[in-house]
Nucleic acid binder design. Structure first.
Lengths: 214, 214
DNA sequence: CGGAAACTTGATCGAATTCAAATAAGGTGG
DNA sequence: CCACCTTATTTGAATTCGATCAAGTTTCCG
């Protein structure tokens, strides 16, 4: 099962691969003819700065394609790293390009994914530009929940949540120290329970109102 | 002349329009069958928050298309506002969709623009997430210069720069007060000269090194 | 010329960072 | 299964970058 991108019915060459946690799956700038879909586990698109700090552009969950840009450019400006053990599959980008020109369904699918990528990036810009640390983290959790829900990975307001505080910090432009403080506040306020790589949303409305704060 | 997107050779219905400064060209969420290209002047893609504050997602300069998403979805999550007087032209999105399926050149053109949109958004995320106010502003100026250069709008390190400090603040997640202080610092350090809606880059290397700071 | 919008400047405040250490959680080899 | 070592998380104190508040001043237009 490959979730969001439905390519099984096409007789594509698919190469299935597995990576352990914290493995570089793709190095920024490298040429590649692979188009990657995450089948299992979590990964992240990461921009590394000159001084060694990182900015995580997005988290990839099962069903996510890494980037439509790779499909047409064969190259990306960010790296991709596994967060958990990840199973992913590679399509040849030229085969897929050919297919999307011949099959309107595939074309639409790819367009939809590209648009979603951009909309997610825009949401991130709004978070980083105009939201407090607490609101950013609440938004991140809610957005991940939404995306996981469409893939049937949320049950009773609970879902697998393998992000370290370092990942949240690198995605939301914060430090781990501050992420720790904010998450503990969310805990004390009875909004979420995070433990053992799982999250339980205890008060959805409350979390949403934190996300809507400035 | 429509700059980046070359559609003149196609016999499209084009509707040319003009908007005075500070006019809403498109309201977030509205359905439309127009695909918009900026021909002259500057505009901005704007996300409005519940409390009235704004986040500018990107600036549009001559030759820019407003958004590839509009082409396929007929709807966007952000508004578009003119900053200066703007001349823009509207294509019918269905005609253009048809054309890009028939003409590989148009298809490639559109794909390239879509990828550039996403890469620009990613750069903004890095700025907002991990850069100081000075570095953000320096990066913004340099990025705008790059884009304007490809359109031949930079001469002797000078270009038209109609952004108010409020625009810079709304794009870079800052306040106007702080933007003023930072810009004056850049001035005092002899890096740039901004006056009369024009900018002159006095010390490119210096500005770049500010942009590369944390 | 007059009024509004944009910019500047100073003083104060506050959210998030930095620095430093302690504690907890996880993973590994014996 | 435990001892050990590494990686995460938590907590406190001090600092800082940028926000806020509050006037001035300048620029821009009609």
């Amino acid at each position: 099962m490959c979730g969001a991108l439905n390519l099984e019915h096409l007789a594509f060459r698919q190469i299935h691969q597995t990576a352990p946690p914290r493995r570089l799956i793709y190095r920024a700038g490298e040429a590649t003819d692979d188009f990657t879909v995450i089948c299992e586990g979590w990964a992240a698109c990461v921009m590394r700065l000159a001084d060694g700090r990182r900015q995580i552009l997005s988290f990839l969950i099962p069903g996510d394609t890494v980037s439509i840009a790779a499909l047409f450019k064969g190259r990306q400006s960010f790296s991709v790293q596994s967060l958990t053990e990840v199973r992913y599959c590679l399509f040849n980008r030229f085969e897929l390009q050919k297919a999307l020109k011949e099959d309107g369904k595939v074309f639409e699918e790819i367009v939809k994914i590209g648009i979603a990528e951009k909309e997610l990036a825009d949401q991130t810009v709004v978070s980083l530009g105009r939201k407090s640390a607490a609101a950013r983290i609440a938004r991140l959790i809610l957005l991940l929940m939404e995306r996981l829900e469409t893939r049937g990975a949320v049950h009773d307001m609970c879902f697998h949540f393998p992000l370290r505080q370092q990942h949240i910090a690198d995605a939301m432009g914060l430090t781990t120290v501050h992420v720790s403080r904010v998450i503990n506040k969310l805990r004390k306020d009875g909004l979420v329970d995070i433990a053992q790589r799982k999250i339980n949303i205890l008060d959805l409305a409350g979390l949403q109102s934190v996300a809507d704060e400035r």
